[in-house]
């Protein structure tokens, strides 16, 4: 029964995973069979953290990805709770319609989203700067300046993913027993106190899950970079998924690319472990 699934996951996930780790210690061109790989010890790791251009590019990509991920999580989590409350509330109608519209953007190809947003961001003929102009805010360079391009990509990411995290927040909210709110009200808590005293603490499990998923989703950013910015301007949107593919597939430097992939995986494991540790410590407090 498990055979077919175990075969496919074994061959196409677990073996490649092991190969990535093995290749990260080899000098190997992606154009040639695995047998041509030559053991070089830690040299690839040494190179990607060195002052050589290989190292500088990789460290910049690591920083860009960390910033992109941190900003995405910092915007998505609070927004998802806020929107979740709006979808969940029964005071006024419209919550379900809002959920449908928010979630729709999560269901469409990222590549189409990237194309559409590249036109929304267009400095003169795009609508975003026009709308900002109505509010008396000057035009922004968006994707065309190294100081703003990464933030523009974060905005795009938040727009596409917020529906998913809102749905998760709603799922968390529906699990909070109504008597708890009743008790809070009897104790004289207002809506704000009820939110911080009941809602937020009971959403912790949901928020833990959302944090982990939003991190894993954010490090996968690829389409808008590959298609629109190509890592630029001035390397400001060169993120890891794009950079690893460029080094390992396009430049065929499979050893270096694998060392970068392993570093990304280790960074993710550290981040996720730290988040779980924080969560547990919060549980005891």
């Amino acid at each position: 029964m498990i055979g077919p699934a175990a075969l496919f996951i074994g061959v196409f996930v677990l073996i490649p995973m092991a190969l990535t780790i093995w290749l990260s210690f080899q000098d190997w061109s992606t154009q040639t069979p695995f047998g041509t790989a030559r053991f070089v010890g830690l040299r690839n790791y040494h190179d990607i953290f060195s002052q050589l251009s290989v190292g500088r590019d990789f460290k910049a990509a690591l920083r860009n990805t960390a910033l992109y991920t941190a900003l995405s999580v910092a915007l998505l989590l609070p927004l998802s709770v806020l929107l979740g409350l709006l979808v969940h509330q029964r005071t006024v109608p419209g919550g379900q319609v809002l959920r449908t519209i928010l979630f729709a953007s999560y269901m469409v190809p990222m590549i189409a989203v990237a194309l559409v947003w590249s036109k929304l961001f267009a400095p003169t003929e795009g609508p975003l700067n026009q709308i900002l102009g109505w509010a008396g805010i000057g035009p922004q360079p968006w994707l065309s300046s190294p100081t703003t391009a990464l933030y523009a990509l974060v905005l795009l990411n938040v727009w596409q993913q917020i529906g998913y995290f809102t749905v998760l927040a709603v799922a968390g909210l529906t699990q909070i027993p109504a008597p708890l709110y009743e008790a809070a009200r009897i104790d004289g808590a207002g809506p704000v106190q009820a939110f911080f005293g009941v809602t937020l603490p009971l959403l912790r499990r949901t928020l833990l899950f959302s944090t982990v998923i939003s991190i894993i989703n954010a490090v996968q950013v690829f389409e808008p970079v590959a298609l629109i910015t190509q890592g630029g301007p001035a390397g400001s949107t060169n993120v890891l998924t794009y950079h690893i593919r460029r080094v390992g597939i396009e430049r065929s430097d499979g050893g270096l690319g694998s060392a970068m992939a392993v570093t990304l995986m280790l960074a993710l494991i550290v981040a996720v472990t730290a988040i779980f540790a924080l969560y547990r410590r919060g549980d005891r407090a």
């Binding site: 196409f12 996930v13 490649p16 695995f34 982990v212 894993i216 690829f222 499979g254 992939a261 995986m265």
Partner: peptide, 20 residues
């Protein structure tokens, strides 16, 4: 092990998978 595979970003295995 399978659940762990679920959380693996595809880029991590892309290079050897391409070769395979």
């Amino acid at each position: 092990l399978m659940i762990a595979a679920m959380f693996l970003p595809p880029i991590v295995t892309l290079i050897p998978l391409f070769r395979m």
